[in-house]
Structures are given as C-alpha cells and as structure tokens.
C-alpha cells in the first residue's frame, strides 16, 4: 500500500501538475512542527529533565537533609569512585550479567522451540498461543508474589516438584539460591515475548523453501538448521538485543521476590534499594543510587545503540 501511494506521488511530480507551490510546502513544515511540538516538549520535560537530574544527583553528595533543603556539595566523580571501589561492586556486576545472559538464553531457546511447535497451525493452536501471552501481560507484582508463594520452603509447589525427582527441599529465596530463583521467574516472564517475535519471524520464511528441501530428502532437523536458523538470524539478533536491554534493567520481579537479597542483587535493584529500599537499607543514599543508576544507564544505552545499528543494517 505504501509503495502504491509513493508511486502515485512520483507520477504526480513528474507530470508537474500536482506539485505544491513553495509557500505551501514551508507552511506544511511549520504545521509538522506544530503537531510534533507537544511531543518535543514532553520529551524534554519528562525524559531529559529526570535524566539530567539523576546525573546531577550523582555528582553531588546528597543525604536525607540536603535532599530536602537543597545545597548538597558538588563532589565531582567521587561518588562513582566510592561505588566502584566497594568490594561488592564487581560481584553485583557479575550477578547482573548472569541474570541477564541466563534469562535471555533460556527465554530465546524455549521461545523458539514453542514458535516452531506452533508454526504449522493445528486444532486450537491460535487460542493456546494466545494463552501463552498471559505471563507477559500480567502485572509483575502478581507474577512475582505467586512465584514467591510457589517457592516457599515448607510446602511450596516448587519443592513438591523437585521432590518428585528425589531432590531435597530447596530454600529458594535465601541469599545463596535467590539468583537462580529470580532468574527462573524472569525466564517464565520473558518466554511470551520471544515466542511472539520469533513466531512472526517464522511466518515470513517462504513455505516453498521447506517443501523443496523436503523433496530433496532433508529431514526436519536438517531443515531447521539449514533453513529456519539462517533465515531467522536478523530476528534472532533483534530479539536477543532487545531482551538484553530490557533484562539488564529489571527491578520489579527481583525486588518483589527477594528485595535483592544475596546473590539476586543486580545493579538495578542495588540502585533502587539504596534510594527507596523499604527497611532494607538503614541510610537513604540518593547520590550512590544515582551513580549506580547512571552506570546502568550507560551499559543499557551501549547495547541499545548496537541494537539500533543492527536494525538499520538489516533494513539496508
């Protein structure tokens, strides 16, 4: 449809009749600016301003008092140095990396398996595929509290499950196991997104390719590795990069399940906890929280830029 409209415009310009006179075009420009202006103002006030505010807090030493009264002293990069110098900093970076990479790997593999499974329609397939969206559309607090309940050590559903395999009850949410537990819950949350994106990617692969390969005697396994995976590469890249950017900044599922206890502490929950921790941190540390937030921001944006570059590249 877009192409047809474009062709019409091109035709109109070559015949010369429908070319709008100059003043009208510049008036259209102004109209465009007028239509977009509220968005521009919005972006400055509600994105740029909070961002600048966050960075400003990270280079001034705020505490409870100066936060209210203002006048916190400027300290340059001192707070960044202090935060990075803490012994737990690199441990938390490692946990963040583990949480993110394990999450997106499993989300992708399970999502892809399901997408392939649902690829050829069968009875009820559309309805059941829609049901798979539920974890993604539920409020995270609902999912997080449900997982917390299923992971309670006494008689939670998870311990019943592992009990069937002869495994001793696990203390899922304690300091040692919490990273594994929040990652399991987060994988569950992310499967629907991967399923939907990969499924729509599969729909774009021409069926004739599979038919030709089948005639040539390629089995399903061979067809998957020689047709599906190579042709799905652009979608795979986009899915993994988006997954990475979204997962690295996750707060809610972790915080609600464990308040970032022990191994489940990530950069995002650490930052959140220092500023807003409900009884978990004795002193409110806005400056430290902002510094960690800014570090997280830089990492997220770095991967975000890679994502944009990849997407532009794929578009040609």
């Amino acid at each position: 449809m877009t192409n047809a409209a474009g062709a019409l415009v091109a035709e109109a310009t070559t015949t010369g009749e429908a070319v709008p006179p100059r003043p009208r075009r510049s008036r259209a420009r102004w109209a465009a600016v007028a239509f977009v202006a509220p968005l521009l103002v919005y972006l400055v006030v509600f994105y740029a301003f909070p961002l600048v505010q966050n960075v400003a807090m990270s280079v001034q030493r705020y505490d409870r008092g100066t936060f209210v009264s203002g006048g916190a002293p400027f300290v340059g990069l001192d707070i960044y140095r202090e935060v990075i110098g803490q012994p737990k900093f690199w441990r938390i970076v490692g946990q963040t990396a583990t949480f993110t990479l394990v999450s997106i790997t499993f989300q992708y593999v399970i999502g892809l398996a399901l997408a392939v499974f649902f690829h050829r329609s069968f009875k009820l397939s559309a309805t059941l595929r829609a049901m798979f969206l539920v974890p993604w559309l539920l409020p995270v607090i609902v999912s997080a509290t449900t997982w917390q309940w299923m992971m309670n050590p006494d008689n939670g559903a998870m311990n019943t499950l592992v009990g069937w395999f002869g495994i001793e009850p696990v203390w899922w949410l304690n300091a040692q196991h919490s990273l594994m537990s929040v990652t399991i819950a987060n994988i569950w949350l992310g499967i629907p997104f991967n399923l939907v994106i990969l499924y729509s990617g599969l729909q774009n692969i021409p069926t004739t390719l599979y038919e030709a390969a089948a005639i040539d005697g390629a089995g399903p396994w061979r067809r998957f590795w020689s047709i599906t995976m190579p042709l799905l590469r652009p979608v795979t890249l986009v899915t993994l990069l988006l997954g990475l950017v979204y997962t690295i900044k996750v707060v809610d599922i972790i915080w609600i399940m464990t308040t970032g206890t022990g191994t489940s502490q990530t950069l995002a929950t650490w930052s959140y906890g220092m500023a807003f921790g409900k009884g978990t941190s004795g002193v409110i540390q806005y400056s430290e929280a902002s510094a960690v937030g800014s570090i997280l921001l830089v990492i997220a944006l770095a991967f975000g830029l890679i994502y944009v570059a990849v997407q532009r590249h794929e578009e040609g």
């Binding site: 301003f49 961002l51 505010q53 937030g293 997220a300």
Partner: peptide
C-alpha cells in the same frame, strides 16, 4: 527508541527528586 531503553530506576530517581 533510545528513550525506551532508559532504565526505569534512573527515571524514578530523577522524577523523585523533581
């Protein structure tokens, strides 16, 4: 696109102080 990638906790900290 970039705006969607800003960590929510960073936005929350900024909004909180404003």
């Amino acid at each position: 696109i970039v705006a969607q990638m800003i960590p929510a906790v960073v936005m929350a900290l900024g909004f909180y102080s404003i």
